[in-house]
Design a protein around this nucleic acid. Structure first.
Lengths: 255, 255
DNA sequence: AAGTGGTCTAGACCACCGA
DNA sequence: CGGTGGTCTAGACCACTTA
């Protein structure tokens, strides 16, 4: 006997059913409920959720319907199916590295060197507050970072993080920062970055920036502004990156 | 009685079935067969293919299997489903315009002005031949074009087309070219562009280019190299576009 | 009203993985 | 081997579009 009590919005025989609940297909309602359970932390990032058959029984639907619900979350990037093993909660973003916008001489796919130059908590400037969806003046953690390959500094990064979420980082020494930040956000702060939007523009280097990159002042540069979102869709990071425009390279596919 | 003779690789009782045919799921084999019929022109671009139920009966499979086959071609970008109306063969690419890489003052979403500067048939240079997958020296049609907004030239384009496919264009006068090329390729030459790959880099303007764009020589520029593919996956166009780097803007989403 | 795609069921069997 | 996701069936009924 299926446990229909778990249905998010049971299709009862009453007249009390809301129009909204009837408008959405069953698989969509179940997907929403399942998403809630995932975001609530019922299954840790990287672990397998319950089996399709078990979930189908739990929600009192046919297997095909349950598969449709799961597929919706897979398309959304929240889950990952592996034949024969299970359906897994996706971990932090990979492949979102800023290095993908550049081609550097020999250094191909290695993780670049990374150096934290500054780490301060301060009141969010207006533009940063807007990008993070915060009130201006909210405390934020500002991280200045240099990234490079083969001893040469190639990218300058300014990273803004809402202080309440990232308190654990403010106490760290610069040397304790890992080269990849997103896994560190997940481990130290419980923040899983699931999506990011990069905004590319072209600019010219100021004196300070040029000096750090060993380039002349006014040299052409690529400026990337990123807003990163966690699995629940909250804005959790605003990042500005500068690099030599001559190293820029990007491939965009259209269909 | 279902017409199983239409099955691309019937699951006969014989020993003659190839391993390959058994390896692929049934929906995949049917998708391949259906794709062949579409590329062969059985249904014109923009028109509806046969109904799911009819196709399911034709191939002798259940509706769910037929739907899976169709869905595969939808994901591939070859078909488009419209609830209540039918399943349609997708037309030429839209939204692949070079203008999406730029932000121009006021001119928002209007189609830019377009002027054909030159139209010649010549032997393909080595790099063009490589990008189009042709032997060097194969005849190609070269189109030089300027695009602009509000009377100001903003983009310079060099377009290379395999002469055999685009013979109909070589006879045209420059004034007879439409502002949007892909629909024209479809109408005049029967070539439907279904996919394109854009490669972005920064460069600097040469004297000639700078003069056309009313910019100083050596000014930073965005260079886009595009290879466009038709529905069958053939390379049908190689295009190089130049624009002011200061007008560059692009949004990349990562997940 | 007729025809289209969309949802859903209640099964069966297959392919893959790990202990 | 048992458990997972993947494929497939033969229906039923719903939602949307067009005439």
């Amino acid at each position: 006997m299926p446990d229909r009590s778990a249905l998010p919005e049971p299709t009862g025989a009453g007249l009390d059913a809301t129009p909204a609940s009837l408008a959405a297909p069953r698989w969509a309602r179940i997907a929403t409920a399942l998403k809630g359970r995932i975001l609530a932390g019922e299954w840790a990032s990287g672990t397998a959720i319950a089996a399709e058959s078990a979930l189908a029984e739990h929600y009192g639907v046919a297997l095909g319907t349950m598969r449709a619900a799961i597929q919706a979350l897979v398309d959304e990037g929240l889950l990952e199916r592996v034949h024969g093993r299970g359906t897994f909660v996706r971990g932090a973003l990979t492949g979102a590295t800023m290095a993908r916008f550049f081609r550097f001489g020999d250094a191909g796919s290695e993780i670049p060197e990374s150096r934290i130059v500054s780490l301060r908590t301060l009141a969010a400037p207006a533009d940063v507050a807007m990008q993070l969806g915060l009130a201006a003046g909210t405390p934020v953690l500002r991280v200045l970072r240099q990234r490079g390959w083969e001893g040469q500094v190639r990218l300058l990064e300014t990273i803004w993080l809402p202080a309440p979420l990232f308190g654990a980082l403010a106490a760290l020494k610069p040397a304790e920062f890992a080269p990849l930040l997103y896994p560190m956000y997940a481990e130290r702060c419980g923040v899983t970055v699931g999506r990011a939007v990069d905004d590319l523009r072209f600019t010219r280097l100021g004196a300070r920036e040029a000096a750090q990159l060993s380039l002349p002042e006014g040299h052409p540069a690529l400026a990337v502004s990123r807003v990163a979102f966690d699995l629940a869709g909250r804005r959790v990071e605003f990042r500005q990156t500068l690099g030599n425009a001559d190293d820029f390279h990007y491939r965009a596919e259209v269909r």
